[in-house]
Amino acid sequence: MTTQPLATATATTATSPVLRVPPADPAVAAAYFGASLAFHADVSDVAAALASDGDPGFVLLDSRSTASWDQGHVPGAVHLPTALIAGQARELLDPAVPVVTYCWGPGCNGATRAAYALAQLGYQVKEMLGGFEYWVREGFEFETWQGRERRTADPLTAPDESEDCGC
């Protein structure tokens, strides 16, 4: 049985732009990454939960404008633009059911703003990382005002021959 040697630091790591600020203590890192998972959901995990036979245990909320919603949205999502959350969330969402928010994509913080607004109202909330952009890029079905569509998965965002990326 052969064992791999442990990675060791060298003099070059001190000048590495990646390690200029050293990694956090493992216990601090575990707390941070654990907290991150409490705030974020992956597009593939959301899709799998929605595709299951049972109740996914959350409501998916699209926080974009009506024009954006009409351009395309996740089937089964609730449409509630961020600006309307304070006035309409209680009419549309059960406070006992967690909410997962999404907006356009990773370059947009609309889902974060929506999640913040909902949390201020007492909702348990997560943000779907990647937003609608990655929903489409990973090849999941979406709805437009014209009906349902599905695009071929982008091989840079989803595995070619598997439903599971292995992460």
Rank of each mutant, 00 (worst) to 15 (best):
Lys126Val: 03
Thr112Val: 10
Leu118Met: 09
Phe140Cys: 11
Tyr32Val: 11
Asp42Tyr: 09
Arg137Lys: 09
Ser16Thr: 12
Ala158Thr: 10
Pro106Arg: 15
Phe39Lys: 12
Ser63Val: 08
Phe33Trp: 11
Leu37Trp: 12
Asp45Leu: 08
Ala158Gln: 09
Val136Glu: 02
Pro106Cys: 14
Leu84Arg: 15
Pro159Ser: 00
Arg64Met: 06
Asp70Val: 13
Tyr32Leu: 14
Leu92Cys: 02
Asp42Leu: 09
Leu84Gln: 15
Gly87Met: 05
Thr12Lys: 13
Arg150Ala: 07
Asp25Trp: 04
Asp164His: 11
Gln4Leu: 15
Pro22Trp: 07
Pro17Ala: 09
Phe58Asn: 06
Asp160Arg: 14
Glu161Gln: 12
Tyr123Asn: 02
Leu37Ala: 12
Glu143Asp: 14
Asp70Ile: 12
Trp145Val: 15
His73Lys: 10
Val100Ala: 06
Ala96Leu: 05
Ala14Lys: 14
Arg90Leu: 12
Ser16Cys: 10
Ala115Ser: 00
Thr82Met: 10
Trp145Leu: 15
Val97Phe: 02
Val97Glu: 06
Gln71Asn: 14
Val125Pro: 01
Pro159Asp: 00
Leu6Ala: 14
Phe58Gln: 07
His40Tyr: 11
Ile85Val: 07
Thr13Asn: 11
Asn109Thr: 12
Leu80Ile: 02
Gly122Cys: 09
Val78Glu: 03
Asp25Phe: 01
Phe58Lys: 01
Gly130Ser: 02
Val21Gln: 13
His79Val: 00
Gln88Glu: 13
Ser63Met: 03
Ala14Thr: 15
Val125Tyr: 02
Pro5Met: 12
Ala38Tyr: 07
Ile85Cys: 02
Thr10Trp: 06
Thr66Ala: 15
Arg113Ala: 01
Asp42Gln: 08
Thr13Lys: 08
Gly166Gln: 01
Thr15Met: 14
Glu163Thr: 10
Ala27Ser: 11
Val125Trp: 02
Val125Asn: 03
Ala47Leu: 07
Gly72Ala: 02
Thr157Lys: 05
Cys165Gln: 10
Phe33Ala: 05
Thr82Gln: 11
Phe132Gly: 03
Ala89Met: 08
Leu50Glu: 06
Thr10Tyr: 11
Leu156Tyr: 07
Asp42Cys: 05
Glu138Ala: 10
